[in-house]
């Protein structure tokens, strides 16, 4: 499995992770927050795959399956929450849902 060096894969993963993180921290809309989360999960999954390929270990591939399952579960719960949020507040703005008065 030559060609693409491991570093490139890992750099891509970390770029994706940073993008996701930035989205998570900056976006207000819950839809984008969920998408950012997905991106972050997938970047981690990518890192697993890259690692598994580099060391010829199947564990990484197994972790990838787990991450995908997790991402699917997370997406379903997140989307359900999003629908609820929208129904209550007529908005996807997460800050609008904050009721805490610190």
């Amino acid at each position: 499995m030559n060609g693409i060096p491991m570093e490139h894969g890992l750099i891509l993963a970390s770029i994706l992770f940073s993008l996701g993180l930035a989205g998570l921290m900056l976006r207000r809309s819950m839809l984008f927050v969920l998408m950012s989360l997905e991106v972050m999960l997938n970047s981690a999954a990518l890192a697993f795959v890259v690692g598994a390929t580099a060391w010829n270990q199947p564990d990484g591939q197994a972790m990838f399956l787990l991450v995908i399952t997790l991402a699917a579960a997370e997406a379903s719960v997140g989307l359900a929450l999003m629908i609820q949020l929208y129904q209550r507040y007529r908005s996807l703005d997460l800050d609008a849902a904050s009721r805490m008065r610190g």
């Binding site: 993180l21 998570l24 921290m25 900056l26 207000r28 927050v33 997460l94 800050d95 805490m100 610190g102």
Partner: peptide, 17 residues
Amino acid sequence: LVRSQNGRTRSYAVVMV
């Protein structure tokens, strides 16, 4: 400390990071 407990997901994320 109460000020940090503001219910905004994004600021929690920032603090966590």
